[in-house]
């Protein structure tokens, strides 16, 4: 179906996934991903033109809860899990202008 996934493809995908790979890892992952995708190429044998996709196995549609007051999320409890917090908010290193 497609050309074998390349080292550059894997490097690109790693960037998209926020992962950093060493050269050795990049080689290994490229081979492994290529093998797996090659196995998936058996789907090419199927005529799927008229088949609808399935995203989910249950026929549940638009599930709403009753509009009743419930227990509110305890802000303190959730903030306690964070690596860094300031003024009741998650704190991160500089996010803007980082490429300048």
């Amino acid at each position: 179906m497609n050309e074998r996934i390349s080292r550059e493809d894997v490097a690109h995908v790693a960037r998209l996934a926020c992962l950093s790979l060493t050269d050795v890892e990049l080689d290994a992952f490229t081979n492994q991903l290529a093998d797996i995708l090659e196995h998936a190429a058996d789907l090419d044998a199927l005529d799927l033109e008229t088949v609808e996709p399935t995203a989910h196995p249950l026929p549940l549609i638009n599930v709403f809860r009753d509009d009743k007051l419930g227990e509110a999320v305890d802000r303190e409890k959730f903030l306690a899990s964070a690596p860094e917090v300031e003024n009741n908010q998650f704190k991160v290193p500089p996010a803007l202008g980082e490429h300048s």
């Binding site: 996934i5 996934a17 996709p53």
Partner: peptide, 26 residues
């Protein structure tokens, strides 16, 4: 994560993810 990111990425979505969802129907 990389396999999934690849299967969902522009240019490959139909070939992998879309196709697999149809196989799920089959």
């Amino acid at each position: 994560i990389m396999l999934g990111t690849y299967a969902l990425s522009a240019g490959y979505y139909d070939a992998y993810y879309g196709k697999s969802q149809k196989v799920r129907t089959l």
